[in-house]
Amino acid sequence: LFPNRNGWHNASGMFYYGGFWDRMPELDLDQQVVRDEIFDIMDFWIDLGVDGFRFDAAKHAYDPNELPKGTPLLDRNLQFWMELRKYVSDHHPETYLVSEIWDTAQNMSPYAHAYDSMFNFDFGLMVIDALNSGYHNQLITKHLSNVNRISSRNENFIDAPFLTNHDQNRIMTMLGNDINKAKLAASLLLTMPGIPFIYYGEELGMLGAKPDERIREPMRWNEDLSSEVAYWSQWQYNWETPTVEVQLQDETSLLQHYIQLIELRKSNPTLRFGEMEQLQFKNSSILAYERTDAQNRYLVVLNLYPGRLEGSFDEEVLANMDVLYQVGDYEIDRDKIYMSSQSMFVAKVQP
């Protein structure tokens, strides 16, 4: 007996399974010839120079409604993905594999050995909650706990944090079209360990809410619709979103914020590979954490509240930091720090 008829489709008396859409039949992964064809397809693209693959909806390789009740779905899924992992490791050891398993860290963790990275859905949800509430809610500590739950099963695991993706309402919409919150979200994303992913248009502040067509509107490159840009449908949410062309000319734009943070990340390896720990600034709306390695120590401090706030930290550290990048203003008075509304900075602490 199957759980139910959802996903099963009738084509002239022949039934097939398409869990997401009737025009997207599932592959029969129990057939070795199908698996071999998947490996051949990967070989083809790798030979052309592709560096990696993103696997969509990986926990649905074997879907709950596809197989009879009692089928050990996790075991079946893991067996397939581990076979694919071994094939890639044996033939293309430098190829990067990142997987989408839309679930909590706890439920993702059994898949840790199958991929180099998995998209971190918990991270984006926690960022949105913190920015909309104005309280950090121990975000970094919880984030590290989630990542450690997975990396404890695979010491080579690389986290893949992101804010929102092509299946979710856009981050700018979730933040109420507040550019200050959007800048703080980008600041968090681009100072995390791992490989951060940016959904196109987030760097412009593009808006969008379900259905899918409205969260996948064309990129806002410029105002000239006759130019050679991707334009597959009219905008509904983004007619007034400032274009790439406009934002590149504005030093205070969201796009410029992304550009400068990415450059900061590229030029300071500790922000990519260093350890991370949440710090306590004695204010639940000031989120602070450090990124460290054997040679360097960096502080990242964000005021999540739409108003000036006071925090407190080690006087010696505050006196010996060089700010590398900031949004908004701050003042230091011995062990006290005063931060303007929704401001942030990244600083290097001198030894």
Rank of each mutant, 00 (worst) to 15 (best):
Y199P: 09
L225G: 00
L188I: 15
W221Q: 01
M219Q: 03
F119E: 02
D159V: 15
S109T: 14
S226D: 11
A209Y: 01
M118W: 03
N120S: 08
E213G: 02
T141V: 03
H113M: 14
I128Q: 12
G194N: 07
G124N: 06
N180L: 11
E202L: 02
A112W: 12
N132V: 00
E202P: 01
M108N: 14
E217C: 03
I150E: 08
K183M: 14
K181Q: 13
L144N: 14
I195E: 11
E213V: 06
Q168N: 15
L184R: 04
L131Y: 02
P218H: 01
Y135T: 06
N137Y: 00
G201K: 03
D129V: 00
P161N: 12
K181T: 08
E155P: 08
H166V: 13
D178I: 09
G205V: 02
Q236E: 14
W235Q: 11
M174V: 05
N180C: 07
K183E: 10
N132T: 03
A130I: 07
S187L: 08
M219F: 13
A112Q: 08
G176L: 10
A105M: 06
Q234P: 00
Y111A: 10
A105I: 00
A130W: 04
A105W: 10
N222G: 09
G194K: 04
S133H: 07
N148L: 08
T164W: 02
L189C: 09
Q106G: 06
N120L: 01
A112V: 06
L204S: 06
L225F: 12
I140E: 06
Y200P: 08
G205H: 02
Q234N: 14
K210I: 02
D116N: 15
A114D: 07
Y135F: 13
L144C: 12
N107E: 12
V147W: 11
I215E: 02
N148T: 01
R149F: 01
L189V: 12
S187W: 04
L144S: 04
Y115D: 02
D178F: 01
D129K: 13
H143E: 12
T141E: 15
K183R: 15
D167W: 12
G205M: 01
G134A: 04
P211V: 02
Q234H: 11
S117K: 07
L139Y: 09
N132M: 06
L184I: 14
F119A: 04
I150N: 09
K181D: 05
S145F: 03
D178N: 15
A186F: 12
N156D: 15
